[in-house]
Structure formats: C-alpha cells, structure tokens
Design a protein around this nucleic acid. Structure first.
Lengths: 198, 198
DNA sequence: GAGTAAATAGAATATGTGTTCTAAATGACC
DNA sequence: GGTCATTTAGAACACATATTCTATTTACTC
C-alpha cells in the first residue's frame, strides 16, 4: 500500500558519514545532509527523530564495525603475534577505509552530538567502551598473565595508542600511511611488550 | 581622561581558555565567556573584533608558549639526549599545565574558528606550523645528518607523536599522567631512534 | 478508479548565538 | 564642576540551523 521509498536510512547515514569525514561533525548539518542525498530536510526527519540520533548512529555504526575487526585480530591464537597483527591492522584499516578513519580518529565521540546523546544510544556507546576495556584486559591476561590496570594501559599503548599516533598525521592530511609507519608500529610494539618481561 | 577598564584582554582570554579546556571550543560562546568574566556581551566586542579573533588568539598564545618551551628542550647540546628530554617534557608539561594540554591536544586548530581564520592570525598560525617543521628538520640533521622527509617523520614520531599518544588518554579523562608513561615514552624513543642507525 | 498508508516536499517556525547599536557611567584633566 | 574620551551595559538585530507542520505525491489493494 505504501509509496515506494526514495531515500533510505542507509543512504542518509552514508551521506552524513562522508560529510563528517570531509568537514567534521559540525559540517553535517541537516541541510547539508539533505542536499547530499538530494532530499528535502523534512525527509531526513521522516527517518531519524533528530540530528543527534542521526549523528550518534553514524558514530556507533563506524565504531562497532572497526572494533569488531580490530578485536578479531587481537583474539588470534598466539597472543604476542595477535597483538602485533592488531597494531598493524590499524594502519592497514586506515589505508583501506580512510573515510572511516577520519570519522573515528579525528574526532571524539562527544564532538558528534550537540545536546547529549539520546539515552538508548548512550547505553550502546557505553557498551562499546566497555568492550574495549574488556577485550584489552583479556588480551593482557593472555599475554602476560596480569590484568593490573597499569599493565592493561601499557598493552593499550602498544596495540592502540602508538599505532594511532603513527598514522594520525597521515589521516589528518588525507594521505595513505606510507609503509614505514608499519615499521614504527612494530618497533614500538616489540619494545613496549618487552617491558612486560615475557 | 578615559574611564578605567574593568575587563582587560587577559581576563577574557583566560576565561575563554578555561571554557575551551572544560567544554571544547564550541563551549566558548560569547555569552559563556561574558558570564565567566562577569561582563555583558558588548564588552567582549569592545576588546575583540569577533569571536573568531578571540578564539584564534587563545589558540595562538597557547601554541606559541608550548612550542617555545618544547623546542628549547629539543635544542639542548647533545642531540640524542635533547630528543629524549623533549619527549619527556611533553608529559611533564601536561602534568604542570593540564588546562593548556586539553586546549592544545584535545582539539585541532581548525576546530577553534567557525568561519575561517582572520588573515593576520592565519599567517601567524602558518608561521607556527613552519616552526615545527623547521625545528624538527634541524634536529633530525643534528641527530643523524639527514633531512630526508621520511627521517624527519620518524623523528617527529619519536619526540612528539608517541609521547602525545602516551598521555592522550590521561588528558581526556582529566587526570595527571602517571609516572609509567615516562617509561613508555623513553622506551619508544630509544627503539625508534635506534632505527636510524646512529 | 477510488481508497489508503507511507513517503516526499518544502514552507513555516523556533531557538541559540554572533554581532551591532545606542545610552549611560566613569574618571582624568582643566 | 564641566568636558571629554573611553568603557560598560544590555537591549535589539541578524542569521544559521534544527525542527515542525501541512500539503501533495505515489504505489498498492480492492
């Protein structure tokens, strides 16, 4: 009975994602999103309750996708190799999906939403945050038998924060990370994991 | 002859800096700044031509101050030690001046200004950017005799980006970086500089 | 082809925020 | 005390942007 849909959620989320990658969250105005999709502003509201919900959805989808792949690497059979694979995967993922990288790595979660996250989505975001902590703790235990907070932070530096530091500038200037960043990531990983005395 | 000033530039810049450190650039609205200083909005415009000029001033002042101190470390007598001193200085500076750290490290330059930087201040910002490149190149030459782009990027990772990665999370949750981040910074520095074969 | 539910369309509205404008207050100097 | 430049004061204005509202269109069913 209904009229055929001309703009679906997927299209709108994708357009918003492109705008955010190009101009940051503040560039993803309802008007800009509507223009990018070729729809009037009202049609955006037919799919999403508010701009906050829309942008939160964009962030959540990207974060969940990235995290799933990343932690899949980290769960590989031999911990020490899995950690290195995950660290290197960060650079690889940035090369393969620069738009997602700009979206996730150039802005913080709280930059996405103006008035505070809608409750349901905030819960989902907290859940994703907990996943990070949980997976890092599990990896830390597998790697060196400790879940001490300091140990987990050190491990997080080796697999997440240092790799991010190595690619950050390239993301910012919108170019693919050159191959020597892999060397930086690996050298940092080996040196830092060496600290844990395995 | 004139009436005594009740609000000076310094006060206003400081208030804006506090607001940005606490809530990000978008939290530093003219109304919020005026409230923080105890002035009506008109008085802000008596000192600054526009909000863009005001926020740009805040960023420029903080960036110049930080860079001067950082590159002073980097210019120390023996390059290899100077590089380590500079890398560690990043963490120390964050401990001593967390507000400045949040201001500079949690947001990018372009997040500060809405409509584009006023020309004069953009030139100043570009000048600061060039200072970074120039000083890093000079340091790279002193350290290993090369100014090759790749070498400079590796050096930048060792003295700037990795140290930043080590403190980032602590800045974000507003706590002082614990002492083990110094270890992470040092270990990364040694390992990465070792790559250059000195 | 009439009925109808869903979707598009875009004008109208609301609101937050940067900016301007005019009046009043202040303090130094004659 | 009058004069004057500067500053405070805050209301008024402009503008961008999110949101709402009321048609209108569309495609499917009977």
């Amino acid at each position: 009975m209904p009229r055929a849909a001309k703009f679906d959620e997927e299209q709108i989320l994708a357009a918003a994602g492109r705008l955010i990658a190009a101009h940051g969250p503040s560039g993803a105005t309802i008007a800009a999103i509507a223009r990018a999709v070729g729809a009037p502003t009202g049609s955006i509201y037919h799919r999403f309750d508010s701009r906050d919900v829309l942008l939160a959805s964009v962030w959540l989808r990207a974060a969940a996708t990235f995290q799933d792949s990343f932690f899949e690497q980290l769960a590989g059979p031999t911990p020490r190799e899995a950690g290195l694979a995950a660290a290197l995967y960060m650079a690889q993922r940035v090369r393969e999906n620069p738009r997602e990288a700009r979206l996730l790595l150039l802005h913080r979660r709280e930059d996405f939403v103006d008035r505070g996250w809608p409750p349901a989505m905030r819960r989902r975001a907290e859940q994703l945050g907990r996943q990070v902590e949980t997976e890092l703790r599990a990896f830390s235990r597998r790697l060196c038998g400790s879940e001490h907070a300091r140990t987990v932070r050190i491990v997080a530096y080796a697999v997440l924060e240092a790799p991010f530091a190595a690619v950050r500038r390239h993301i910012a200037v919108n170019e693919s990370p050159p191959s020597y960043v892999d060397v930086l990531i690996q050298v940092t990983y080996e040196a830092v994991i060496g600290l844990l005395g395995i």
